[in-house]
């Protein structure tokens, strides 16, 4: 549905988007994840035909963003970053304007506005207000309603939940997921849990480059297969460390804290190996006592951090 090939965009000397390529299939929700200033919004602006790429090309539904700009714009719904809206316009007037530009026949406009308002959780009270009087959460819903009004095949949402309270965030996420059943969606965000909760596939972008892509599980697996075991052992410290040195299948271990005879270690295993059994045996054999043992998987959060903070 969306194909991006070797896209590059420069602003003066800074390269905002650096030779990225990716694809989004019909009915897929793609998470576009990256820290602030990674080039997410620039990519979205190119996809929505707001600005052309310097190099490379992007096609949506087989149409080129540069040559068939008008046709593409008819097919997409777009919620730009920070949800820009006309503050002095009434909510209904605004939606009427969008409906008119979106070529919704005059006779159907009213019902369509009602439908989309309901879908986005805009009540009668909000519809009667001016956009400028709405709270941030409701503004966001107006922005979403505006993007959905013509029932577009492709939806591009740039940071749709920024500034919302947790309940609203959950609602908007659910809404996006519902819509995503039939439509192709790109969701931009710098918040990992957001993308994790809604998207089937994730692209991680940093300084204009794609640094990782795949399903959340794939991403976690791809970066590292190691496991970390936290263990607290009561016993003589030197002896414990000697034994840990001898232990097979460990990559490294660190002493995290020591209190009297209680020592807490972080032990990183080699790929795909569960150390807990060996560690338990070790404790039993040496007649120490075990007060804590906990295994953690490397989470997507760690991957994201690693991918986006790593020095080149």
């Amino acid at each position: 549905m969306i194909t991006v090939t070797n896209l590059t965009k420069r602003f003066g000397p800074t390269v905002a988007v650096d030779n990225i390529s990716f694809e989004v299939h019909r009915g897929e929700i793609l998470g576009f994840l990256g820290p602030n200033g990674a080039g997410k919004s620039t990519t979205m602006r190119i996809l929505t035909c707001y600005m052309p790429p310097d190099e490379g090309k992007a096609t949506l539904a087989g149409l080129d963003t540069f040559e068939d700009s008008l046709k593409i714009r008819e097919k997409i719904g777009y919620l730009p970053e920070n949800t820009p809206l006309y503050n002095d316009m009434g909510v209904v007037d605004y939606l009427k304007f969008i409906a008119e530009v979106r070529r919704i026949p005059h006779s159907k406009r009213k019902t369509r506005i009602k439908e989309v308002a309901q879908q986005c959780g805009l009540g009668k009270e909000e519809l009667a207000k001016d956009i400028g009087q709405l709270s941030k959460g409701y503004r966001q819903r107006v922005g979403l309603a505006q993007a959905l009004i013509h029932n577009p095949d492709i939806l591009i949402l740039d940071e749709p939940t920024v500034g919302l309270d947790p309940n609203q965030i959950i609602e908007i996420r659910r809404l996006i997921k519902d819509i995503g059943e039939e439509k192709t969606i790109i969701l931009c965000s710098h918040i990992l849990p957001e993308v994790q909760a809604t998207c089937k596939r994730i692209i991680i972008i940093k300084e204009g480059k794609i640094v990782g892509s795949g399903t959340p599980e794939e991403l976690a697996a791809q970066a590292q297969g190691e496991e970390i075991v936290y263990i607290t052992i009561q016993g003589p410290q030197e002896q414990i460390q000697q034994q840990l040195d001898k232990l097979e299948n460990t990559q490294e271990y660190h002493l995290l804290s020591s209190e009297n005879t209680s020592h807490r270690f972080e032990i990183i295993s080699k790929k795909g190996i569960d150390l807990r059994k060996d560690l338990f045996q070790l404790v039993v054999d040496n007649q120490w006592s075990l007060t804590e043992m906990q295994k953690t998987q490397i989470t997507l959060e760690d991957v994201f951090k690693q991918l986006t903070t790593e020095e080149n």
Partner: peptide
Amino acid sequence: MGTMELLMTLPL
């Protein structure tokens, strides 16, 4: 206000 981006990405 940033509404330019929205206006220019409408099919106009």
